[in-house]
Amino acid sequence: MIFLLVTTLLVGACTATADNSTTTTAPTTTTTTTTPAVNGTTGTTTTATTADSTTTTTTGPVVTVIDIVLAGGTVERVQRFDIPLDSAVRVTIAGDVADEIHLHGYDLHADVTPQTEAVLEFDATIPGVFEIELEGSGLLIGELQVAP
């Protein structure tokens, strides 16, 4: 009954904002981790990675996108997300609870409700392992590992 769906997407920032019609190709890395666990069944993990061409110039920083979905006010398994140092990060947390999200170390806060997602956007400039906590219930719902 408690299930967890986590999707991690690492995409080049410019794919969303920059002009894609130019000859400059953005570095694109896509990693999708989906863990639909239904009553004890373990989830599946698919990983697709596309490396960029070494000759191209980069038009923007890498953006790491992390989505965490809470069910029953928690996650089934606390996951650790890898984040390249100095990349731009966007963490969204959707769920069926009203609580405050706290990303330790970076000390960022955002509110989540059943209607609205919590969104944390920041540059990953501090290396280390950082906890994402539900401030009200005190639950650990994920960890960010920022490494060079």
């Binding site: 706290h102 392992v129 950082f130 906890e131 906590e133 005190g138």
Partner: peptide, 18 residues
Amino acid sequence: GIPAPALAHGIGGRADLP
């Protein structure tokens, strides 16, 4: 009024890289 599940650590929340 503490709920059963809990986050450890007296202070911080940042840990060293492995």
